[in-house]
Design a protein around this nucleic acid. Structure first.
Ligand SMILES: Cc1cc2nc3c(=O)[nH]c(=O)nc-3n(C[C@H](O)[C@H](O)[C@H](O)COP(=O)(O)OP(=O)(O)OC[C@H]3O[C@@H](n4cnc5c(N)ncnc54)[C@H](O)[C@@H]3O)c2cc1C
Length: 448
DNA sequence: TTGATTTTTAG
DNA sequence: TAAAAATCA
């Protein structure tokens, strides 16, 4: 009898424990049916790069399965039972999916299925919820989590199982949405992920610690999109790291930390982890929409912010340093509640992930666990000068400023030749807004 | 992990 | 004058 492997965020064959189990469980030379459920709730309001990356990843997987990947539109709790009956499957296998809806949705699926739903593995080296403090409570601070996580360890990667793929009727994988002209999305799929990792491991890892904060250098691994859809598993990355690669390992551990936090506090996906700052004054009405729109379209008049936001719209990716700068600017300079920014990010990032994104935002907004204190306010001019010292990153994304010398590119209004035409004036005065944010913070703190 | 600004001090 | 240290949110 055949089994079903339900592909979720594990769109790969190698080191996929659930798939291995599905293959092993198929009795009497049975085979495995691989299905991906295109749940509208999973996609949400997604930008074109994000959708294109998913569809391309699915196409790559379909190729690996010799065209046998079964794609079905709908809710897992409806699609999977139907499919299981259709092919008289013996069991359904999948990786555990953590997050606000993961478990609840899976209970629903398990209940609706005529056969067992078997979980194994997850998208993390250490499953969320697995490491805890000595007293059994979850970690709230990163560094002790890291030590415990590291001590816990993980298995070495396994090879892809040999699988005979079972066919069934499939909905077509949707065509790519219209993309901006000349856009180069990253190559996706398991083979591309492996290749990208090898290139980074050989060429980028050594300089990572020193260059990871420089958006102009493109010195990071860009593995986030692959980790998002599971075309590579973090175990594979971790297995290649030596003692000298501590900095990179710690970044991977942040992803695992946030997943762990979300596991214990599923509500923190959309709601404040800590409600302490709920009383801050935030823009609303017409002011909110005007500011949000200027920010989203990269028209704030702060070059480093605009460069980042334009890259996000165009490519669906932004350097970590830029994510922090633009998030800080939205929350502390434009006084827009972090939830608006998080929604925009999630729709457009090709690596958009509930745990990392929402806790990244809560880190910036000062509402998360182990977050940056609210009073730590980024100065967008200084950040630009420090981390994009020659202005090359800004020039790449803000052509209006192409001609400016490095000296003034992060503050074009101070150009002795006058502010450049076609580029907006600063939407707000950073120093005034900084003072306003601090004053409001004091007010909220006093009132508590 | 991921600041900014002001003040002090070395050269 | 720039780097280091102290202080500030
Ligand atoms: C406001 C904000 C929102 C973010 N949203 C997301 C998101 O939706 N999805 C996402 O994957 N990352 C998110 N991050 C984290 C980080 O910015 C990206 O993971 C990173 O920029 C991806 O590029 P990279 O793969 O080249 O990173 P590298 O520097 O090469 O890091 C390697 C891997 O480590 C992990 N990692 C690195 N930094 C972080 C971090 N701060 N938090 C969690 N994991 C990290 C990622 O999986 C990344 O792929 C967010 C950060 C902030 C500040």
């Amino acid at each position: 009898m055949p089994t079903i492997h339900w592909f979720r965020r594990d769109l790969r064959l190698a080191d996929n424990p659930a798939l291995a189990l599905a293959a092993k469980s198929a009795t009497a030379d049975g085979d495995v049916l691989g299905v991906f459920v295109l749940d509208p709730a999973l996609l949400g309001p997604s930008g074109a790069p994000r959708l294109a990356v998913l569809f391309r990843t699915l196409r790559a997987l379909d190729d690996q399965l010799g065209g046998r990947l079964v794609v079905r539109h709908g809710k897992p709790a409806v699609v999977l039972p139907k499919l299981a009956k259709e092919i008289a499957a013996e069991s359904v296998h999948c990786a555990a999916d953590f997050g606000p809806y993961g478990h609840r949705r899976d209970d629903e699926v398990a209940e609706a299925l005529p056969v067992p739903l078997v979980h194994s593995g997850s998208a993390y080296a250490v499953d969320p919820g697995e490491v805890r403090k000595g007293n059994g409570t979850p970690f709230q601070v990163y560094s002790p989590f890291y030590r415990s996580w590291h001590d816990h360890g993980w298995s070495t990667p396994h090879r892809a199982p040999r699988v005979d793929w079972h066919g069934a009727e499939s909905d077509p994988i949707p065509d790519d949405p219209r993309l901006p002209d000349g856009l180069d999305l990253p190559a996706v799929g398991e083979a591309a992920a492996k290749k990208a990792w090898k290139t980074f491991k050989d060429k980028g890892l050594r300089d990572y610690a020193g260059s990871r904060d420089r958006p102009d250098l493109d010195a990071t691994s860009r593995m986030s999109v692959h980790l998002k859809w599971g075309t590579i598993h973090p175990r594979t990355l971790l297995a290649d790291l030596g003692p000298a690669d501590e900095v990179y390992r710690k970044e991977l551990a942040w992803r695992e930390f946030y997943a762990d936090v979300l596991f214990h506090r599923p509500d923190s996906a959309r709601a404040y982890y800590s409600a302490d700052l709920k009383g801050l004054h935030y823009a609303d009405g017409a002011e909110l929409s005007a500011r949000l729109s200027a920010w989203q379209h990269g028209q704030t008049g702060y070059p480093i912010v605009d460069a980042g936001m334009r890259q996000l719209l165009a490519e669906g990716w932004m350097h970590n340093r830029l994510r922090m700068i633009v998030a800080s600017f939205l929350v502390k300079d434009l006084h827009v509640e972090w939830t608006h920014g998080a929604r925009h990010f999630l729709a457009h990032l090709v690596d958009g992930d509930l745990a990392s994104n929402n806790h990244g935002w809560q880190w910036v907004a000062g509402t998360g666990t182990d977050a940056a204190p609210y009073f730590r306010i980024f100065n967008p001019i200084l950040q630009g000068k420090k981390f994009d010292p020659d202005g090359d990153y800004v020039r790449r994304w803000v052509p209006e400023l192409n001609h400016l010398p490095s000296r003034v590119i992060h503050e074009p209004w101070s150009d002795p030749n006058g502010a450049p035409a076609g580029y907006p004036e600063p939407i707000v005065d950073h120093f005034a807004e900084r003072d306003a944010a601090l004053a409001d913070y004091q007010r909220v703190k006093r009132s508590r």
